[in-house]
């Protein structure tokens, strides 16, 4: 199924009002609100016509202009062989997104990475710790307005 068909199917079967977004080039995606994310994700995984059993990638994104943070879920079904890009966006001052770790185990480390580098808090994650930077690192490096700290534990970081 294509993104449109999946959106249509979801709207028809579950009464949602999802709408795919198209860009000038590349993939299209659907945006869901964080309050229903887990529900949608569970449906996507378990519905027998969708069966997205593979979470290929989970990325945190900083949308600087809108003062928002976003998470992109790249889903794939090895059974039906179709893909879907799902996005969720949260305000910068309260970046809480429900965790999908219990649905796809692979999200565990991806979410930790998004937390570490972009600063999104995943509610319900079993151990949301920084993964690539040290635990006491300041700031989230992949934010567009990130400024590197001058020294870390009395060692100059070279700026």
């Amino acid at each position: 199924m294509t993104t449109e068909e999946i959106t249509e199917y979801l709207n028809r079967e579950y009464g949602g009002n999802l709408d795919p977004t198209y860009a000038e080039a590349g993939d299209s995606w659907i945006t869901v609100s964080p309050s229903v994310l887990r529900e949608v994700a569970k449906t996507l995984r378990d519905d027998k016509n969708l069966q997205f059993n593979n979470l290929m990638c989970l990325s945190g994104i900083h949308y600087q202009k809108e003062n928002e943070l976003g998470v992109a879920y790249h889903l794939h079904s090895t059974i039906h062989d179709h893909k879907l890009v799902m996005k969720v966006r949260v305000p910068e001052d309260n970046p809480v997104v429900p965790s999908v770790e219990s649905l796809w185990k692979t999200a565990n480390w991806h979410e930790r990475e998004a937390y570490d580098l972009v600063g999104i808090t995943f509610r319900g994650h079993p151990g949301l710790l920084r993964i690539l930077t040290p635990q006491d690192w300041e700031g989230h490096p992949l934010r567009k307005d990130y400024e590197q700290q001058e020294s870390y534990r009395n060692v100059s970081t070279g700026i």
């Binding site: 080039a25 993939d27 890009v85």
Partner: peptide, 16 residues
């Protein structure tokens, strides 16, 4: 450059 986004996966020796 164009506006938009892509997710492309390829098979490396270690996986996707």
């Amino acid at each position: 450059s164009k506006e938009g986004e892509v997710y492309v996966r390829t098979e490396t020796p270690r996986g996707e």
